[in-house]
């Protein structure tokens, strides 16, 4: 059991998302940074998709009611256990009754917005429609279908594997993507790409887009040059997915994120490829990102690179963890 002592707003229980319920109008939800979740679970010997707590705002303080292995991945929020520093992206042991405090992320080699508190055995809230992720619209999944509050007690599962006691280098440092020194995400043009002006195309690929404060798990509103279609577009409602870059009438793009509604009708100029959504999900408010045009094959290769990184992490962690216990 984990007791929430101090939760800043919008901390939620998430796993890799709720797949297969789109025909009920139920979107994906799930972590904004799936690489950080999977890495944390690998360090703890969990299944890769075990649920964790996603923390977008700080400080965040919990008390462990029993001894448990845990790790804090994602943004480096200077985790400390009963006042003693613990390393980010490391599996650590917490004794019963100890208090873990996460602070506002400081300047780091990888500026990131969200931290993940993963525990051995995972956060054991009930599966709803196949997932433990919090679905805010409709209020189900996660912990009582809502963000965590002070005093909440979150159940943890039975640890199946062995926590490694070691750490991982965040994949953002291992497999970075940037253009002219600005963090980048790869984009495939979408259905209405050709309906935008040549200026809009040029701007899309050359602007360093600012993540505005109106950005959250639903969508990232970007600040930058206006993207204008050659003529007004009327679309019929259709399914959309996280990563879709919609351009409403004002010309300022919005990228759909994990809590976005699963259908829409605004013109789509492009879609951030699934393999780079974790990079975007960690972009802090006020930071800038570039869009990097890619081909279908490059997009699939990017997904394969993520899987290779996780596979290598799993293999190396298990080898080193074995040597430590000998």
């Amino acid at each position: 059991m984990i007791e929430i002592i101090e939760a800043a707003a919008l901390a939620t229980v998430q796993d890799l998302g709720r797949v297969g319920a789109l025909n009920l109008g139920v979107g994906l939800a799930g972590v904004m940074d799936p690489m950080a979740l999977s890495a944390g679970n690998i360090l703890l010997g969990n299944e890769e998709g075990a649920a964790a707590i996603e923390i977008p705002l700080f400080p965040f303080t919990v008390r462990f009611r029993q001894s448990i292995d845990f790790t804090v991945t994602g943004a480096d929020c200077a985790p400390s256990l009963d006042g003693r520093p613990v390393q980010p992206w490391f599996a650590c042991r917490a004794e019963a009754g100890t208090t873990l405090t996460l602070s506002v992320p400081a300047a780091a080699a990888w500026p990131a917005a969200r931290a993940y508190l993963c525990v051995a055995g995972g956060v054991d809230v009930p599966l709803v429609l196949g997932s433990r992720s919090t679905q805010l619209r409709g209020s189900f999944g996660g912990h009582l279908g809502r963000p965590l509050r002070n005093g909440d007690v979150v159940p943890t599962g039975v640890a199946k594997g062995t926590a490694s006691g070691i750490g991982l280098v965040p994949p953002s440092l291992d497999i970075p993507v940037s253009v002219d020194g600005v963090p980048a995400v790869r984009v495939l043009p979408a259905a209405e790409y050709e309906a935008f002006t040549p200026e809009a195309h040029q701007r899309l690929w050359s602007c360093a887009w600012r993540i505005t404060p109106q950005s959250d798990r639903y969508g990232f509103r970007l600040g930058g040059d206006e993207l204008i279609p050659t003529a007004p577009l009327e679309l019929r409602s259709h399914g959309i997915v996280p990563g879709v870059i919609q351009v409403p009438h004002g010309g300022q793009p919005i990228i759909q994120m994990r809590d976005a509604q699963p259908s829409g009708g605004y013109p789509k100029i492009g879609v951030v490829i699934e393999a780079d959504l974790w990079r975007l999900g960690q972009a802090p408010i006020g930071s800038r990102i570039r869009f990097l045009r890619c081909t279908w094959d490059e997009a699939l290769d990017a997904g394969a690179a993520n899987r290779r990184w996780l596979e290598k992490a799993r293999r190396t962690v298990s080898i080193l963890a074995d040597r430590r216990t000998v």
Binding site: L168, V169, L320
Partner: peptide, 14 residues
């Protein structure tokens, strides 16, 4: 106390 790290592939040992 952690005073340094050894990096082995993607993993870190304190």
């Amino acid at each position: 106390d952690v005073i340094g790290f050894l990096r082995v592939g993607p993993t870190l040992v304190a």
